[in-house]
């Protein structure tokens, strides 16, 4: 009787392990195939249209009720500001979007690049956050909940675009701060974000992400010579809700063109997916091994106990 149950147990545990291994190797998680929510919105940033007026920065500051800037938003000196030995401005706790100027050799006009959260389809910040402070909404926004943030700043390391900023100025409750696509105040009510609405040049086009991809490729086709034939954010890291068109190669505007198409989560999803299976199968498996390994000893103990009991009876 005990022999049969042992064989059954071994067979079952082997089948379990095999199933776990198979599901891991077949890549059943398929993160790379996800294209985001079908009705997700996005913004197409056409850098050939931007004139560097920084109205978007001003509108963001007002909409998100951010602290007053060091320099007025119409002060062109902001473009000459640099920190850490020549780095251009980046997003901070007080500025969720920033426009930087790039002087390109051979171009008459400088090129302006607006940066903000790109609202990835498969956000690395969300993947890295162990308290689930991040959510990707069906409208396309990557939201951040500062109520649960513990301030570990893992997302700041995880973000391939260096976007999340940290409220270092707060002594008692420092949390991560970043662009939220104006989700609460605008996006979920069917309104474009504040930066898009104020842009005089319509350098920012708001719409369904899938429509924007069509529009972007149409612009490239219809205006030969105006654009480089690439829509940054269409494929990068599984796609982003914010996408860029440029007249000069993206590397010259400090875009990271080495990111590849795989979402960050693809690098860890297999491993993390195995954790629950390991937790479910290993205890049972090793308990079984333990029982088998100690069965004889246990049996011997029983047999050893018997004579004493029998002795007692006598």
């Amino acid at each position: 009787m005990s022999g049969i149950s042992r064989r059954k147990f071994l067979a079952a545990s082997m089948a379990g392990s095999a199933a776990a291994t198979l599901s891991l190797t077949s890549g059943a998680f398929g993160a790379a195939l996800l294209e985001g929510y079908p009705d997700g919105m996005g913004v197409l940033v056409d850098m050939t249209r931007c004139i560097g007026c920084r109205s978007c920065e001003a509108a963001c500051n007002k909409e998100q009720q951010l602290p007053a800037p060091e320099m007025a938003f119409d002060d062109p000196a902001a473009f000459d500001y640099s920190y850490h030995a020549g780095q251009k401005r980046r997003t901070t706790e007080a500025a969720y979007t920033v426009v930087n100027r790039y002087e390109i050799q051979g171009e008459e006009q400088p090129v302006y690049r607006k940066i903000q959260c790109n609202h990835c389809n498969e956000p690395a910040c969300l993947t890295s956050c162990f308290v689930n402070a991040y959510t990707k909404t069906k409208e396309g926004a990557v939201m951040f909940n500062d109520k649960v943030c513990v301030g570990c700043r893992t997302c700041m390391v995880a973000c391939p675009f260096n976007i999340p900023a940290y409220s270092y100025s707060s002594a008692f409750n420092p949390v991560v701060k970043k662009c939220v696509f104006c989700h609460e105040t605008r996006l979920k009510n069917g309104l474009p974000p504040a930066c898009v609405e104020i842009c005089p040049q319509e350098a920012l086009t708001f719409g369904n992400r899938r429509d924007l991809i069509k529009i972007a490729h149409q612009r490239i086709n219809d205006n030969p010579g105006r654009y480089v034939d690439h829509l940054y954010g269409e494929k990068e890291l599984g796609g982003t809700s914010w996408m860029y068109l440029s007249s000069v190669p993206f590397e010259q505007l400090a875009f990271d063109t080495t990111l590849g198409r795989e979402p960050i989560i693809s690098n860890v999803k297999g491993f993390l997916g195995a954790v629950p299976m390991v937790l479910a199968i290993w205890p049972a498996l090793f308990t079984g091994f333990h029982l088998l390994a100690t069965k004889n000893k246990h049996g011997e103990g029983h047999q050893a106990d018997h004579p004493i009991q029998e002795d007692d009876k006598q």
């Binding site: 109205s55 001003a58 509108a59 500051n61 007002k62 007053a68 800037p69 060091e70 320099m71 007025a72 938003f73 119409d74 002060d75 062109p76 000196a77």
Partner: peptide, 17 residues
């Protein structure tokens, strides 16, 4: 007010152009 410019500049009128 929006641009925090002119007399409403956070750094004072002298800082804005």
């Amino acid at each position: 007010e929006l641009f925090r410019a002119g007399a409403l500049s956070s750094a004072g009128p002298a800082a804005s152009r």
